[in-house]
Design a protein around this nucleic acid. Structure first.
Length: 476
RNA sequence: GGUCUCAUCGUCUAACGGUUAGGACACCAGGUUUUCAUCCUGGAAAUAGGGGUUCGAUUCCCCUUGAGAUCACCA
């Protein structure tokens, strides 16, 4: 394929959720795997729905995930401008062409009259077709009335890269609005013109548009434009219920995931494999692997549910794979506030023993707080422990005192700590489940922590022993 | 209601008409000297229903059922 150009064309009406990002990702992958261009075009033709700042937010979302675009509102390109609101002359030019050729006409009816037609159709359980009311002698179009396409209803068969062979009858073709009375074009008109003017080769978009495709095909013919390759991506569905994922079901802003400490590469891998696979049993993909292996025709035809638990697993998988130094840089802003004055070396050691249990960065404070401050004694940790609650305070104290005197003799290297702890098990004739749990609780005061020897090693001799002493005191 | 589309474990999915229907997430059990996590082993878990075609259907056809999309001067 020569010079592939794909585009992502959102309207700036709010944040980008995972479904939108997935569509953008697929378009981006097609461009990258063909050494083509990926274009961002803002479809801001509905001024009523536009949200201030949404454009910036959207661009930021793409950039954070690494979906860099070659042309867009904030990039130079030979096909600009990339905001539809700045391209009105283009739409007017093409609209005039249709008018001149008798393929567009002014809609003489008021909105109320059109609505009455629609209500009547609905009452009769018929689909609404404006062309059943097409006027015989429409007035000249002067912008005060909507401009409608004069359609040429017919049967269509076409190929969709994802959905396969599709076909429809003439009953779905209608005289849709091209230009609104506010001077802006409708999506149905503007995207056709822009895709052609911008030389887009692949139109990859979500499935709510598929029913309109026959109308688009009809318009391409009237405009005498070659139609691009079409690919319709199914919606991402909410985990519960039967609805597509939407903002009201709690679909999160992708930037929220990034803020919570999800790695962009994990989000990308997860989103790509939500409804796509390469036919092997590979579950996780790097971006380079996706660029190499992705293909539109292996996208599922029905919508996949968004299961955040799988995303969590993918993210943990990526976190465990990156190097400690890399991870250290990435978690810079996620440490508990008590770590403010801790030095890099210490924080790095903490991170190294926490890396395998970190699922996303926002968890870091609860996982590591005790490394940076003495947590208050929590008696419940002992009283709720199956084994420990059977022992008396006196017995617990004896064990902890033995631990202190043993640890006094350790150089606190991990190996020596392991050795000393083993000796302690023998000398006190205690099971690991008892002794180690007790010591772990004494030094961390948390329900879960990394391995005991590692934790002692990082905490250091002084802190460890003083915390055990505090626990002994609390038992008195 | 019309039109289009889809249908495999709870979830994401694999299976040129011939497989004990495979993998992953989640779940359960066991193991790796404590917890949590990682890792390893094992377990439970699916072809929506009914008809065809075929020696043989998850796979092809039809019907039913269920689901999604759409029928805007929104995209």
């Amino acid at each position: 394929m020569s010079n592939v150009r794909t585009r992502f064309a959102p309207s700036p009406t709010g944040f980008l959720h995972v479904g939108g990002i997935r569509t953008a990702l697929f378009a981006w992958l097609v461009a990258r795997q063909n050494d083509g261009q990926f274009v961002l075009r803002l479809e801001d033709t509905d001024k009523k729905r536009e949200v201030a700042g949404a454009d910036k937010h959207l661009m930021e979302s793409l950039k954070v995930l690494g979906l860099d675009y070659d042309e867009g509102p904030d990039k130079n390109g030979n096909f600009g401008p990339y905001r539809q609101s700045e391209r009105l002359d283009v739409y007017n030019k093409w609209a005039q062409k249709l008018i001149d050729e008798g393929r567009a006409y002014a809609d003489p009816y008021s909105p109320e009259e059109v609505q009455a037609f629609r209500d009547e159709a609905k009452k009769n359980k018929q689909p609404f077709l404006y062309r059943n009311h097409r006027p015989d002698n429409p007035p000249k179009w002067d912008g005060t009335k909507p401009l409608r396409f004069k359609s040429d209803p017919k049967t269509y068969k076409w190929h969709d890269e994802v959905m396969g062979e599709l076909s429809t009858g003439p009953e779905v073709i209608d005289d849709f609005v091209l230009m609104k009375t506010d001077g802006y074009p409708t999506y149905n008109f503007s995207h056709i013109v822009d895709d052609a003017e911008m030389e887009i080769t692949h139109v990859i978009r979500s499935q709510e548009f598929i029913a309109s495709v026959p109308n688009y095909l009809n318009l391409y013919e009237a405009l005498r434009l070659d139609r691009p390759i079409l690919a319709t991506v199914p919606s991402v569905m909410a985990l519960e219920g039967t609805k597509k994922l939407s903002k009201r079901d709690g679909a999160k802003d992708v930037l929220d995931y990034v803020r919570d400490g999800y790695l962009p590469e994990a989000l990308v891998s997860f989103l790509a494999t939500l409804g796509w696979n390469d036919g092997t049993e590979q579950e996780v993909f790097t971006i380079d692997e996706l660029i190499e292996k992705f293909s539109l025709d292996r996208i599922q035809k029905s919508g996949a549910r968004f299961d955040e638990r799988r995303l969590l697993w993918v993210n943990g998988h990526f976190i465990r794979q990156i190097t400690l130094n890399d991870l250290y840089d990435k978690v810079e802003n996620y440490w508990p506030k008590e770590a403010k004055d801790a030095d890099d070396e210490y924080k790095k050691r903490v991170l190294s023993i926490v890396q395998e249990r970190l699922k996303y960065f926002s968890e870091l404070p609860e996982l590591t707080q005790f490394f940076f401050m003495d947590l208050p004694i929590n008696p419940e940790l002992i009283s709720s422990n199956k084994k420990l609650k059977k022992l008396s305070n006196e017995e617990l104290k004896i064990l902890l005192e033995a631990t202190v005197s043993k640890l006094e003799k350790s150089d606190f290297s991990v190996n020596d700590l392991k050795e000393k702890l083993n000796e302690l098990l023998e000398e006190t004739d205690t099971k690991p489940a008892v002794l180690f749990s007790l010591v772990r609780i004494a030094i961390t005061q948390t329900p879960a922590s990394p391995g005991l020897a590692d934790t002692l090693n990082v905490l250091g001799k002084e802190k460890s022993i003083s915390r055990i002493a505090k626990q002994i005191q609390a038992l008195s």
